[in-house]
Design a protein around this nucleic acid. Structure first.
Lengths: 267, 267
DNA sequence: AGTATGCTTCCACTCACCGGAAGTGCCGAG
DNA sequence: CTCGGCACTTCCGGTGAGTGGAAGCATACT
């Protein structure tokens, strides 16, 4: 039963194999044993052993008391460098917004065909929600995603709406024609709303954050409980105010690193 | 003039070379050109080109509009997995503490011989400070560091106090004998203070966060301006309350991943 | 046009990588 | 206590992926 080595092609290059090992830890955060890593990557056990050993020595992976591997702190430190200025600038402003609204607020950018949550501020009182920092959600099913999509260039929108749209809940809008109309309305009004489209029990609203160089850079979102779905718009003034301040502070730093990578064909 | 390839030994293994390239970006966050990476690592340009190319394709690095490389978002995402639970649990509590005190607050753990800042909450009103998330500072010169040192096992304290202690400002305490007394006082009183020891103009106070399994796991710190140095202790009740709540919430998750890596000899 | 600089591509040699196999250590069953 | 099973670690010879010098491009500056 354990021969589910559903591995396509063990990459030819060593670099590829190393990165493949790291990829294993993207799927879930659970620590893995050497054997599990070997099975999931399709690499020979001795090869896995050597590569994982080097990764551990450097600090990219670390072992827990049971000898299982997980992502190491050194990699976390390194990752903090990516987009550091932007997050450091936006964070206190997100906090201000949280203080004003007492609702979970977050900021997301488009990464290929998904919304990537780059920061979030929330209180101890938990609201059902799907987003997490460093996590991704579909563009069409979230308020931030709709904003990102609505204000992006037409060909991006076309490419994403052409793909099959995943339905996360019974309420997810998945009809491309209807979505296109909805996005036009988002542009017109300057905000987007999603009610229980990605997770039952929660509703969200989002506004765009534009870049100085033009074009949309990120989206600022707010999450509330289902019951507040009809009164979300009352948060708009605060959200827009904070969005403007983020735009002003971020200044020259580009939010979106690049549009779409030319190398990897499909969006 | 460009032969300052102050590189010790280009590592034999490909994995080592790949990690060496990533290490370049630990030093500073500035984006680098291919040639710079090649020079800093001591790897041949064509080799660098190929490895960097693979890293970029995977998303570990990304290029800015000028073609320079920096840490990629995929690496950031991956890094978010390290210690995710702990940060997600602690974050809202840090925010509560910030709301209560209106001062920058942070949480740090000991990583080898330095304090590693794993999260921080701060407002728009900036105070001079040295810490940043994902950054490190010396244990002996910070309030959190003193707490981490004071409550750790004796042999750790001995090892660190045996090394030469860096002086960040004229006020840094660097005398091992005096420090040892200071740390004893920290244990007795249950908190540590550092006034302008790491950065002029700022003072900080910290309390320990213990692990359920026993031993110190992290330190909770608060930063204020120099002028408040004498009244820092008034924040203690709030800090201790939040520290207790973090301890309760963190529960079984180990804060410190491991004590000290056995492989890399020196602490 | 001319030159300098930095990036990309190419290719034959060779050395580091691969992986089967044997060795080690641990645990639980008999 | 012994045995078998499991997971990890170490070893080693064949070989193909990695290396880096060199040549080809693309910009930018004179």
């Amino acid at each position: 039963m354990s021969d589910d080595a559903a591995r396509a092609t063990p990459p030819a290059s060593v670099t590829g194999r190393v990165l493949l090992i790291l990829s294993v830890f993207e799927q879930s955060l659970a620590p893995r044993s050497l054997t599990e890593i070997s099975a999931e990557t399709g690499l020979a056990l001795s090869t896995t052993h050597r590569l994982v050993g080097e990764l551990e020595e450097w600090g990219a992976l670390q072992r827990d008391p049971n000898g299982r591997y997980q992502i190491g702190l050194r990699l976390w430190e390194l990752g903090q460098h990516a987009g550091r200025q932007v997050r450091e600038i936006a964070r206190p402003l997100l906090q201000d917004l949280y203080s004003l609204t007492q609702r979970t607020v977050h900021i997301a950018i488009r990464e290929n065909s998904e919304a990537l949550y780059i920061d979030r501020v929330y209180g101890t009182r938990r609201v059902p929600q799907a987003s997490r920092v460093g996590g991704r959600l579909p563009l069409h099913a979230t308020a931030v995603g709709k904003v990102l999509l609505a204000f992006d260039e037409p060909w991006v929108r076309d490419a994403i709406l052409a793909q099959p749209l995943e339905s996360r809940t019974p309420l997810t809008h998945v009809d491309p024609v209807a979505l296109r109309k909805e996005l036009a309305l988002v542009v017109e009004r300057g905000f987007a709303i999603a009610v229980e489209e990605v997770r039952e029990g929660s509703a969200s609203i989002a506004v765009p954050i534009f870049q100085r160089t033009g074009g949309i850079g990120a989206a600022l979102g707010l999450v509330a409980e289902r019951g507040e779905a009809d009164s979300l718009e009352r948060h708009l003034p605060a959200m827009r105010g904070i969005a403007r301040r983020i735009e002003a502070s971020v200044g020259a730093f580009p939010l979106r690193s690049l549009g779409i990578r030319p190398t990897n064909g499909r969006l």
